[in-house]
Amino acid sequence: MPQFFTNKKLIVLLVGIIFLVAIISFSLSNRSNPTMPERIIKDGVGFVQNLASKPVATVTSLFEDLDSLLATYDENKRLKAQLSDFAVTKAELAEVKTENERLAALIDKEDSLIKYDPINATVIARNPDQWEEKVIVNKGTKHGVEKNMAVMTADGLIGKVTVVTSHTAEVELLFSNNPNYRISSKIKGDKKDVFGLIEGYDEERGELLMKRIDSSLKVEKDQTVVSSGLGGIFPQGLLIGKVTEVSTDDYGLTKMAYIKPAADFALLDQVVIVKRETTAIDGVDGDNTNQDLTNPSEESESDAK
């Protein structure tokens, strides 16, 4: 029977394990940006993956087409019912928009938290081991993507950018238990909006948790939740989801709501990365450093002090 480990192998194994522990603990520490070799590998693999994802996308879109074809009849009925409402709403919206513009011009108000530049991106890969819910898209710093930006589909918000290299960006989806993952949001009320923070995710229910809601305010089921824009990075008014249940927080001081996300997270292929037009501050939506992200010169000055 051959010896299981020879001496040389044993040394290699021990050195390997020490190196392994060191490198794992290095990568688990709070790093803000990927290192140079990581960026090179990410861009390289991203380039090849981008090419490889095209035929795969054709196949998956075929599935999607088939799926939507089967649902056509029901959808048609539902849409017809909505169409008459839509015309009225559209006319109203146009009127309100022009009025809003006129009023904004009247008071010299140029900035708005609602305005944003969309950056269209294609999903090139989804983390295959699916422990951390994230997707990788084919736009990076070259195209104006920055860390912590909001990412949405036509249906609503899906996540935010966590790592960005020159040609790829990683989007961490809303289903995250990362304690640093917060989105400043608000529940649209009839008269008054109710503010809170989306933080955490209930794995059993498959719903998001909105915490730190003022307990004196009333929150009801089926109210819409949108981003508030007060977290510094996200624009205002991106649809997040609907309230399904309201309960109290762990400490009983504030309310907590369960939110069912509006976007569909299966078969993500096209996403929009949202860059807001007003000054961005690294607030609650980001890492809470309160640095001015849009005017980096000021930031370096304040660092010098």
């Binding site: 392994l20 794992i24 990568s27 990581e38 693999v45 081991d129």
Partner: peptide, 17 residues
């Protein structure tokens, strides 16, 4: 393993091991 770690996981050394 190294490619997988860097591209997807961001924890280097997991799949590489």
């Amino acid at each position: 393993g190294v490619l997988y770690d860097v591209f997807y996981i961001n924890i280097i050394g997991l799949y590489a091991f």
